[in-house]
Design a protein around this nucleic acid. Structure first.
Length: 288
DNA sequence: AAGAATACCAACCGCACAGTC
DNA sequence: TGACTGTGCGGTTGGTATTCT
């Protein structure tokens, strides 16, 4: 037996909201608030709408101080960085952009930003490939002149080719990392990227938890890439499921799996990210 | 000018979580 | 402790607008 539906589907209107419905809902909420019960609200004000639909309409459209469209470069960078670090947690990303809704950001990402980044990523990758090839040729010449004893497989020493943007379809299969950890990791990798980081000092439990989650997460990220792009871009055996990531430790930040995945977005990372203090946001650091 | 293809975005759906009883 | 319920979230859908051929 499934869960009872939240409303009587047969007697509920669907589709676009009329200006009258908008006005009714807006007027009521502005005067009385939601009353803490969205399910009961439409009945109370005579709207033939599902409570969830009312909530969505209010949050995404009727709520004061909503900005639609016209995303700035700075907002692009914030979205990009947060997406890379915490994935499709749109509500969290929206919380960092005053006036933006999660739905807006989600739509913006899916329709524009993703394509924009993919285009840039392709360009960057081509450039990197060219640089890498030149470097290989030089090294080859060098090694012919000065062979390195004991170096069997030089391939493993070439710089990593950065994987492209994670396809959404693949990402959806990734288990969610707890919010508390996502946010701290975001702070850790983005806000503190420039200097020595002591965020995890005294947080051994969190560190271990994150390490484990990031690792398992990354395995699936890699699997996703493999499936989507083939194994050509995979490096040092990661396509077989035994990546170098396995030996990642927190002792060396460069060995973290996420920054490797992330670093293809230098363009984003190098932009100055505002020091958003997620910790100040009561919604996110309530009792966890 | 018209039909097809693509882009955009509002809204829906279903799941997970948290609170309550 | 487990069932029930409201809420929030994220993925997806479908209608409309715009661009392309």
């Amino acid at each position: 037996m499934g869960r009872a539906p939240c409303c009587d589907k047969a007697n509920v209107k669907k589709g676009p909201w009329s200006p009258e419905e908008d006005a009714t809902l807006k007027a009521y909420i502005e005067a009385n608030g939601t009353g803490g019960n969205w399910i009961a609200l439409p009945k109370k004000i005579g709207l033939k709408r599902c409570g969830k639909s009312c909530r969505l309409r209010w949050l995404n459209y009727l709520r004061p101080n909503i900005t639609h469209g016209g995303f700035s470069e700075e907002e692009d960078n914030i979205i990009c960085s947060l997406y890379i670090n915490i994935g499709s947690r749109w509500s969290i990303i929206a919380a960092q952009l005053p006036g933006r809704t999660d739905n807006d950001i989600k739509n913006y990402w899916n329709t524009k930003l993703k394509k924009k980044l993919l285009g840039k990523q392709r360009k960057d990758q081509q450039a990197r490939r060219a640089t890498c090839l030149n470097f290989k040729h030089e090294m080859k010449r060098e090694s012919e002149n000065y062979p390195v004893p004991g170096m069997v497989n030089q391939e493993s020493h070439w710089p990593l080719l950065q994987p492209p943007v994670m396809p959404l379809q693949a990402r959806t299969k990734i288990p969610k990392i707890p919010l508390r950890i996502c946010l701290r990791y975001y702070q850790f990798t983005v806000n503190d990227a420039d200097g020595p980081n002591d965020m995890f000092q005294g947080l051994d439990g969190l560190q271990a938890e994150l390490s484990e989650l990031i690792y398992s997460n990354n395995q699936q990220v890699l699997d996703g890439f493999e499936g989507f792009y083939g194994t050509d871009n995979m490096v040092d055996g990661s396509s077989t499921g035994t990546s170098s990531v396995e030996s990642s430790s927190w002792g060396d930040i460069n060995s973290l799996p996420y920054p490797q995945t992330v670093s293809g977005f230098e363009a984003c990372q190098q932009q100055s990210i505002p020091q958003v203090s997620i910790y100040d946001e009561p919604n996110y650091f309530g009792p966890q």
